[in-house]
């Protein structure tokens, strides 16, 4: 078992003539929290979509958990242990919390193909355990997602990643649409994930949040990784300079 959970080499994605992602070399250690920053269209989300198998890359190689991987779709990536919280919350509004947590991977009392009988009690207990683990309290688990606030929904979406033994969690702007108090809740969950030693890739525009939460900051600009900075060796001004292109890192040494 190596110390590296995720590694990409020369990861490239072209949409027709548009070079959305060019030669991205990236490494993530076990237990490490990394932020991906960059302007709109810098290639952050494209990078995540290649890793999670939502799109197929043009070129490059990906290693995950010690072996080279080629995910055909997001479900394969999830089965391998990569849990993603997407910007547009992949939740079913009319289902309650346990149903959403276990959507597509239900626990059964009796297997009868499509008519398999659900083990509702076990799913409820597992849901409670997951919410405890992430520090989320939702008093009425039977409530449907539709009746919840944006923050509660986001908490459920994140708790879903924590329910299953995930090896890597990716969050794409998890607090973009949230208020101050709800943002604080989500950040609390991210700290819990750190405390449990699970690695995380966080896409965020929020400089304060990034400096609060992560160990390392990777900056994307025009489809390329232009900076790889240890949090304690950089400043907000420097990160902004990389994002805007005012400053460039001549040689990307792997900082640990």
């Amino acid at each position: 078992m190596s110390d590296i959970i995720l590694k990409t080499e020369g990861l490239t994605k072209h949409y027709g003539g548009v070079h959305a992602l060019q030669d991205a070399d990236f490494e993530l250690r076990r237990g490490e929290h990394v932020a991906i920053m960059g302007d709109n269209g810098a290639g952050k989300s494209t990078f995540v979509r290649q890793i999670t198998g939502v799109e197929q890359r043009t070129a490059g190689r990906i290693w995950f958990d010690g072996r080279e991987v080629n995910f055909a779709g997001p479900i394969e990536a999830r089965e391998a242990g990569i849990e993603t919280v997407f910007q547009n919350l992949a939740l079913a509004d009319d289902l309650d919390v346990p149903s959403n947590l276990f959507l597509g991977r239900e626990k059964f009392l009796l297997r009868l193909g499509p008519f398999s009988i659900l083990d509702r009690r076990a799913m409820r207990q597992a849901t409670q355990a997951a919410l405890t683990k992430t520090g989320v309290k939702i008093p009425n688990l039977s409530n449907t997602i539709r009746n919840m606030s944006g923050g509660q929904r986001q908490c459920v979406a994140i708790a879903r990643t924590a329910t299953f033994a995930s090896k890597l969690i990716i969050m794409d702007e998890p607090t973009a649409a949230l208020g101050v108090r709800e943002t604080a809740q989500v950040e609390g969950i991210i700290r819990q994930i750190k405390a449990h030693g699970e690695p995380l890739i966080l896409i965020s525009h929020n400089m304060r949040q990034v400096f609060d939460l992560v160990d390392r900051i990777v900056v994307f600009r025009r489809g390329r990784i232009v900076a790889n900075l240890r949090k304690d060796q950089t400043t907000g001004e420097e990160v902004v300079a990389y994002i805007t292109g005012a400053k460039t890192q001549p040689e990307l040494e792997v900082v640990a």
């Binding site: 079913a92 509004d93 289902l95 959507l103 239900e106 009868l112 499509p114 008519f115 539709r146």
Partner: peptide, 12 residues
């Protein structure tokens, strides 16, 4: 059953 759960999930 998971049949019903899937109906509601796909519908919502």
């Amino acid at each position: 059953t998971v049949y019903g759960k899937r109906c509601y999930a796909i519908g919502s």
